[in-house]
Design a protein around this nucleic acid. Sequence first.
DNA 1: ACCTTTCCTTGACACAGATCAAAAGAGGAG
DNA 2: CTCCTCTTTTGATCTGTGTCAAGGAAAGGT
Lengths: 247, 247
Amino acid sequence: MQQVASPAFKSCSDCPIRHRAVCAKCDSDELELLEDIKYYRSFSAGQTVMWAGDHMDFVASVVSGVATLTQTMEDGRTQMVGLLLPSDFVGRPGRGEAAYTVTATSDLVMCCFRRKPFEQMIGTTPHIAHRLLEMTLDELDAAREWMLVLGRKTAREKIASLLSIIARRDALLGLAPPGKELQFELPLTREAMADYLGLTLETVSRQMSALKRDGVIILAGKRVVTVPDMDRLMTEAGDDSDGGYLV
Amino acid sequence: MQQVASPAFKSCSDCPIRHRAVCAKCDSDELELLEDIKYYRSFSAGQTVMWAGDHMDFVASVVSGVATLTQTMEDGRTQMVGLLLPSDFVGRPGRGEAAYTVTATSDLVMCCFRRKPFEQMIGTTPHIAHRLLEMTLDELDAAREWMLVLGRKTAREKIASLLSIIARRDALLGLAPPGKELQFELPLTREAMADYLGLTLETVSRQMSALKRDGVIILAGKRVVTVPDMDRLMTEAGDDSDGGYLV
DNA sequence: ACCTTTCCTTGACACAGATCAAAAGAGGAG
DNA sequence: CTCCTCTTTTGATCTGTGTCAAGGAAAGGT
């Protein structure tokens, strides 16, 4: 559990156990070990990184860009089950087959680690296993929070929930804004938002318009969102507390 | 990763890293270590084990009975986010506060481990961390599978999905039945089913009746379900493959 | 046996969100 | 600039599930 004085963001961004923007647990020995087994892959917006069921001989970490994890039924109904933002981890040690389809929704860079040696490292480097456990537990919490959204919230609340998640996540990654006002770019199309929320894209569009009309958000173009009052947005989302950072 | 020749079910049922009925990884040394920090608690059906936000100084494993993990909004809307069957694990190392409300839906016995010493054990006993990681990843998969159910399936498909999960889980824990016919007792009230499925209890009741009328299931009383044809049930659930064991 | 409580079923009706349809913007390629 | 495509918005209508309401069935206490 040793802590590096001031971990350089650059090196930390390569580390598979990095999470939530800054990892305080990297040390150079591990980074060297990882050096041997890692490589980068780039994808352009819209490209599919892998299909559910594909053979997968690596695990990876998002360096930049946004990707989605989706599940699809035979008849085409699609549900997004995870949103991968920079620092998020994909893949499961011990599993050689992708369980979900991974798609880049913006230009994407991933840092990949060959699976077998990575699995060995987990065995030999206890705190990597520990860190992975922590990350997985966070994702589990996020998934469960999302179950409440999917199962019990109205369309308007769903949209507000998604916006507040992205806003908070962006605020964490970038700099916290000076006032209460927050601005960010939506990394998702209306269709992708619908797939995340269990809605149709028409309903997403209507509710976005409604939130805009009611002054909860301000739209510049279709993708740039300004939130004048974060508390208001969270109220719209039906969130009581400020708990539950997400995905 | 040493393997005990033939682990006795009795001792294994006390092990926190037991999962899916049989854990092949226990060895007696660890069980002795655990001996010091464990104790049992019993709850009767309907009792609340802990409320979201409660202080929690233990983690635990379900020995017998069924419990649910639920999240509630201020206005009372409730969503179940996890179903705890025997061998499932509750609690998160490193977190002193319960994130969800845990309720016993049948008489319940839990094997509890004091949190602090348990956390130390994770640090000193690598394969417990590894086992916990595996279990957490399984739960994450289950949660994501459930997101598809909540977000995209119809009421009828939701009911069929829940029934097939319970049926499969029961078949794994008990003996696999000789033929294709499967029988089990529903461990949930209609209301609990509704909370799991993001429906109302009336809709659950109507769809149960519809499935019964259509011969997909046979009801003996209100809680005992017989599935004459498991494949048929899975088709009703909209599941293509037989993949995705659950919760 | 009777009462009370809890759980479940069924019906009538309302409404949120889906579906179908059309058109307006916003880039890119030539 | 113009055409083409992709994304988004908006409108009209339909439908699955929620809501409200009443009654039945099973279990437990006295």
